[in-house]
Simulated assay, not measured.
Amino acid sequence: MTIEPFPFIELSGTPEARGRAYGRAAKARVHRSLAHYGAQLSGQGMDASKVHAMARAFVPRIEAFEPSFVPEMRGIAEGADCAFEDIVMMNCRTEVLKLAQKAEAAAKADRAQPDGCTGAVLLPEATADGTLIHGQNWDWKKECAETGVVLRIRRDDGPDVLTFVEAGGLARAGMNAAGIAITANYLESDRDYRQDGVPLSLLRRKALEQEHVALAVRTIYATPKSASNNLMVSHASGYGVDIECAPDESFLLHPEGGVLVHSNHWLSPAALSKLKDTGIANTPDTVYRDRRVRAALVAKRGRLTMNDLREALFDDWGTPYSVCRPPRPNFSGNLSATVAMILMKPAEGVMEIAPLPALNRTFTTYTLRDAPVRAAAE
């Protein structure tokens, strides 16, 4: 089975110019993304005019958060030959999917198809070469293996950014030239969708635009959100933190013995004393995924390499409800999978990604400096 690597797109210039170049380069994948989510929203009773109206309602909120994101999205729409509202929808897709109906009905509809993930940060004290390693399995819809792209964004007003994202989006997982790296995991609580907030994907892009890790943490910790989410932030110098975010409050988790692992359930004692975890029913494997990855890593603490994290994330115990998930129907009948395994060394500006890793062990190495290179995992 041949699985193509995620396309690499380099961008520079003004936000609008970057957007146009991005849209042109990823046009086919953008339209594939739009068709996929458009069909899902149509199944929830939302035609294009309703989706566009919902997307337009996010624009003032986005402009207030970061004005440059709007012209960048307009540029993507122009380059990809689609409506501006479609690109806004792609950058707010978590919120739009859940708000497509009334809050209670939307949450019920999407809980059966959660955005999973297992992530880890290894501090220098735990690694063989004293270099921080940050990685993740992104669990979502199998179709997204055909819509992902990798962007290298050359910026004149801040550090360059390297990010993996669904085509049309501004960022998902990634790192920047200042040594900051970010991944995200699905979380759910009884506080979700009671307030308006900044779309989660744009929080990640804003954090990756920061020169200082303190400002990246502030962006994630303090910005109001509509839904819960877990974000892992690291810095090449040897810092890592996990931020469990409710819409109106954030909770911190720190590495133990240089190892930090998170899946899709709340771990902070403070969080669990104040809110209800409503996601485990539909991601029951989360209760052992993090423990299995942590155990594999702790066993080699002080000697850990990128390959050790790779093998921990390839774990197939309990398959298909495993750390590395092969394509399988989820509780709503959608085909779910580990769409991508992403491994990063922020100090070296290196990111390795394998699409559908349960079926494919060929990684492509993307960097903040050089052209991509493909290689099979050992």
Rank of each mutant, 00 (worst) to 15 (best):
A106L: 11
A107T: 06
A107M: 14
A107I: 07
K108T: 14
K108N: 06
A109E: 13
A109W: 06
R111Q: 14
R111S: 15
R111D: 12
R111I: 14
R111V: 08
A112I: 13
A112K: 14
A112N: 05
A112Y: 11
Q113K: 09
Q113L: 12
P114K: 03
D115N: 12
D115W: 10
G116W: 13
C117V: 02
C117L: 03
T118I: 04
T118N: 01
T118Q: 01
G119M: 14
G119Q: 12
G119N: 09
G119E: 13
A120V: 09
L122G: 00
L122S: 00
L122K: 01
L123V: 01
L123D: 00
L123F: 04
L123Q: 13
E125P: 00
E125N: 11
T127Q: 02
T127E: 02
T127Y: 02
A128N: 06
A128S: 13
D129P: 02
D129R: 08
L132G: 03
I133N: 00
G135W: 02
G135K: 08
G135D: 11
Q136N: 13
Q136T: 12
N137Y: 05
N137D: 12
W138T: 03
W138M: 11
W138H: 03
D139E: 15
W140T: 08
K141E: 07
K141W: 14
K141C: 04
K142H: 04
K142C: 09
E143N: 02
C144E: 15
C144Y: 14
A145S: 15
A145M: 05
A145V: 15
E146I: 06
E146S: 14
T147R: 13
T147L: 00
V149R: 06
V149E: 05
V149Q: 03
V150D: 06
L151I: 08
L151E: 10
R152V: 12
R152K: 15
I153L: 11
R154S: 11
R155K: 14
R155S: 08
R155M: 09
D156I: 04
D156A: 15
D157Y: 03
G158K: 09
P159L: 02
P159V: 04
